[in-house]
Every structure is written in structure tokens, then in C-alpha cells.
Design a protein around this nucleic acid. Structure first.
Lengths: 234, 234
DNA sequence: AGCGCACTACGTACGCTGTACGTAACTAGG
DNA sequence: CCTAGTTACGTACAGCGTACGTAGTGCGCT
């Protein structure tokens, strides 16, 4: 009887090492790093139990000693990513600090493009996630409001950043493993969209397309969205 | 040579029926309805090609005549859901209209809890999605701004609604197919979180927990988030 | 009218996934 | 020292998306 748990477990609540038995060959950090390396290089879908085990150099099922379910592997990845947040001494200007946080998160997501897809409140309890949250709260010390409001503000900023960067990435990333290029896909979609719009059924949409346009400034869109969210709280 | 496409295709750009050959047994609407029925009743993960085919009463591979890839099945589902949006004559008060849109979207997502998970700009080109977008633009006719700004506003509102309702649902939905209950899972997580917070490493987080709390008013959180976003644009 | 071809239908099969289970080796605590 | 709890990992299974081949069907063209 190997005693596999029939009760929910947060991976962080079980000790990494109990003392009994042979010394484990890898640490959680090793495993997280391997998974992150794969996801960065080959996309999130390449992160399989077999692939991660191979990357570590052990048998597939050995991984299950460290990580009871695949979801927990994701949790390790998210924690490792959270750990990359640089934390600083708050400046006293909470608005500026929060903008800095958002930009850092955006950069982090561009470095690890699988992050938006995994982002979920479920992973908000890992050690590094808590540290990050505490840091956000520290930045908000000068913001006079109950903690409930501060939490709502942080959630809103994180949500908007995730949504926007997720969209930035999705349109680029989607065709990674497909047999055609990004440009081909876009061309087909735009051609179709043009046909629909030209049908006259969507006059305002047509007007919107006619309006200049020019290349979309992703950075600008992000910046404006962020500013509006912060304005909404002031 | 069955001529399977080696070039990207939006499913909407190929005709539902060409005229040649036997009359297809099902319409796209039939297929979408079957998939939606399954997803509503058993969750999105139960929507497999085999399961949908069985629901329709045909062989698995027959489905591929209608839907070249599983992703296109999702696209049909999203379009069917978009079609449930009720469209009305804009009132002239764009803020009120947008709030009404947001509430309707929220209700839609609570009716089809798989919606937030599938929400992606990729599915923004379906007929019903375009109709919905046109309606949002119509609501914004009284809002004096270039179309680019209107689009950013709509994207922001949709993004916030998706994020918030997604979170509302995720915490409830996650344990659907797990061997333990929602309450058990929450208890374990909260116990763990309490232990972490009590360690003293996260003073502000601890203060936040201490601060009254009371049961969280999800409706209120949603309402406030929405109001703040709209304020940010005014 | 009738030929031919594009289309529908669908069974079989392949490679991949997460992971349950059993076994052998190992080591710290009583 | 013994033994119970670990680690390590090979094998196996159910389920996934879907490539491919074949048989049957009926529209469009000659």
C-alpha cells in the first residue's frame, strides 16, 4: 500500500523531503526548471510527463513521486515564473509602482509565452505568488483604501495584463506547430473578414475598417488600457 | 484524392453545402447544439469527437466531413453561444447599454460555464460574433471617439467580464470531476493559506485576512469592476 | 439518359496522452 | 538490526485526435 492520497492536497503543503527512504534525485526547482525550459522552447503542449522526465533523465513514472498530478507540474511552473518577478522598495507613488509591476509582468509573459494560458486563481497560493501579492500590497501602502479594495485593484491590473498580453501572444503563437505560416493564416482570415464586411451587413464594422488603421501599436494599446484601469480607481 | 486542404481555412469561408453528393445528414447548427448540450451537462472536457458523434448518432469519422479539426468544433460552439446574445435598439445612453451588454454576457457565461475557457480573439470572426460586435458599436454611436477607441473599450469590457466570470466559475467548477467536494478542497487550501499567513512572512496579506471579510459578494465585485472600467474611459 | 466525379459515411489503425499498479532497491527511525 | 516508508521505474490501459482507405450516393454535364 503506497498510500496515495484520496483527499485533496496542495503540493506546497506536503514537505519536499520526509527523511525516510533514499535521497530524491531531483528537487522541485529542478523539475520546474526542466518544464519551463521545454515550454519556452517548444510550447506548453510539449510539456508532457514523459517529455519532462526525459529532460530530467529519469523514467516517466518516477516523476509521479514528486508531482502527484500533471496539474501540480503546472503549479511548479507557475511558481518558478512568479519567482522571476523583481521586487523593489516601494517608491511611495502607488500608481507608478503598479505600472512598473504591470510592465514587468508583461515582460515576464513575453519571456514565457505559456504564462497567460496557465494564469488562474488556482495557482495563486504558491510561495512566490504570495510573495508577489505581498509586494503589490506594499506598493499600495500609500493608497488609502480598505484591503478589499486594494485586492480588487490588484486583481484588475493582473487580469487586464493577462488578457492583453494573452491576446498579443495568441495571434502570434497559434500557428507555431501548424503547417502554414502566420502570414498565410492572417491573409485568409482578413480576406474572409473583408468579404463579410463588404456585404454591408455590418456598417459600423466597415467604417471601423475604413478608418485609417495603420499598423497596430500593441505597446500603446497596452499602455492606454492600463492607464484607464488605474484612472477608474482614482 | 479527397482533396483535404493543405492551406489554412476558416470554417465560415467554406460553404455548408456544395450541392454535389448525398445530402448531409446534419447541419452545422445540429452539430453545434449537440456539442453545447454535452459541454453544458458534462463539462468542456467531455466534448470529444467521439462523444459528439455519438450524441448526433453517427460514426466518429463522419464528423470530420463537417468539421475538419476539433478547433473548428469549438468555433461552432462559440458561434452558437454568441447567437444567444439578445440585441436591442440602443437607448442613446452608451454607458447604460454597455453595462446591459456586460450583464447579459455574464448571464450567458453562467449558462454555459465553458465559455470563458474558450474565449479567444481567434473566435471573433464567426457570423454571430460579428453581429454582436456590430451591436456593441451601435451602442457606442453616442460615444464621441474614433472607432479605434471604441474597439478598445469593447475589448476591455469583454476582457474584464471574461476574466471575472471565469474566476467566479473556475473556483466552483474545478472540482466537478474530482473525487472530493468543493468544500473539502477549499478547506485544505484555506488551512494551508492560513498557516503561511500566520508565519509572519506576509504582514499585509495577514492584515487583509484579518480585515472583517464576511462572505464575498461576487455580484458586487463584478459591478464595481465594470463601473471602474467605464469610468476610466470617461 | 446516363456517365463520372465530388461528396457523404464510417471502420480500422496509429501515435500520443495521463496515470494505475506492481516490483525491486534503499535508508532512516524504533 | 529490523522494518516501514520511500524512491525508482517498467508495463499496461483507456481514451484522445485524426490519417487513410473503401463503399455508396446523387448532382451536373454531356
Amino acid at each position: 500500500m503506497a498510500g496515495r492520497a484520496a483527499v485533496p492536497e496542495v503540493i506546497w503543503s506536503r514537505p519536499e523531503r520526509t527523511g525516510r527512504g533514499p535521497r530524491p534525485a531531483y528537487t522541485r526547482a529542478d523539475i520546474a526548471a526542466a518544464a519551463v525550459r521545454i515550454a519556452d522552447a517548444e510550447g506548453l503542449d510539449a510539456v508532457t510527463m514523459r517529455r519532462v522526465a526525459a529532460e530530467l533523465g529519469c523514467g516517466t513514472m518516477s516523476l509521479y513521486n514528486y508531482v502527484p498530478r500533471k496539474e501540480d507540474l503546472y503549479e511548479l511552473m507557475m511558481d518558478a515564473a512568479s519567482g522571476e518577478h523583481e521586487l523593489w522598495e516601494p517608491s511611495g507613488d502607488w500608481r507608478a509602482d503598479l505600472i512598473r509591476v504591470a510592465h514587468q509582468t508583461r515582460a515576464l509573459m513575453h519571456r514565457h509565452t505559456w504564462l497567460p494560458r496557465l494564469m488562474s486563481p488556482v495557482y495563486g497560493f504558491s510561495p512566490n505568488a504570495l510573495r508577489y501579492l505581498e509586494h503589490c500590497l506594499a506598493c499600495l501602502d500609500p493608497f488609502e483604501a480598505p484591503y478589499g479594495t486594494k485586492m480588487e485593484l490588484i486583481a484588475m491590473v493582473n487580469g487586464v495584463v493577462t488578457t492583453y498580453v494573452g491576446n498579443e501572444i495568441a495571434t502570434v503563437e497559434r500557428t507555431r506547430s501548424l503547417p502554414w505560416s502566420q502570414e498565410q493564416e492572417n491573409a485568409v482570415r482578413i480576406a474572409y473578414l473583408g468579404r463579410q464586411v463588404a456585404s454591408g451587413a455590418y456598417p459600423r464594422l466597415a467604417a471601423s475598417f475604413a478608418e485609417d488603421a495603420g499598423p497596430i501599436d500593441l505597446e500603446g494599446v497596452f499602455e492606454r488600457a492600463l492607464a484607464r484601469v488605474l484612472d477608474g480607481f482614482a
